[in-house]
């Protein structure tokens, strides 16, 4: 289980003016099962007490890996620089007091409509696979996957 709970998701202990994160190798006690197992919570290689921004290229690479993007070595400096500047821009949120504010996921306080359980879509394979890059016998093909 690598399901983090929101309450344990992270603890922003940074009290300084900058938007700092203190616990990067924090092991989160996750366990829906309460079995006390630990997983490394962050994919990023920060160290405990290390203030902050992912200014070193390996961090951007870790995020890129998570997003399945490949960054050219030549562009890494630039990408890291812009990435860091964007994060610095958003850092100003830290100064806003949001204690007790319910997060807003959607602009309106509306609730989900439900659909009747009826089959409305027939076989559209041919049309839907028209622009598929690699198809055989109706299957989409990908390089061999090993479970």
């Amino acid at each position: 289980m690598t399901k983090p709970s929101s309450a344990k998701h992270s603890k922003n202990t940074g009290k300084s003016a900058s938007f700092s994160f203190v616990l990067k190798w924090e092991c989160i006690n996750v366990g829906v099962f309460g079995q006390g197992e630990s997983v490394v919570a962050s994919p990023l290689s920060f160290h405990s007490g290390y203030a902050a921004m992912p200014t070193i290229p390996t961090d951007v690479l870790s995020v890129a890996q998570l997003a399945r993007l490949r960054i050219d070595e030549a562009a890494l400096g630039d990408v890291t620089d812009r990435f860091t500047r964007t994060l610095n821009l958003v850092a100003q949120l830290e100064e806003i007091d949001t204690a007790g504010v319910i997060p807003m996921s959607n602009p309106h306080d509306m609730h989900q409509r439900l659909r009747a359980d009826s089959v409305t879509e027939g076989n559209q394979r041919e049309a839907l696979q028209q622009t598929a890059p690699a198809v055989e016998d109706g299957f989409f093909l990908v390089p061999k996957v090993i479970d």
């Binding site: 055989e136 093909l141 061999k144």
Partner: peptide, 13 residues
Amino acid sequence: SVHDAYTGQTGVD
């Protein structure tokens, strides 16, 4: 995923 049908490829259904 279907692993055995195609050489070097996996089929996705």
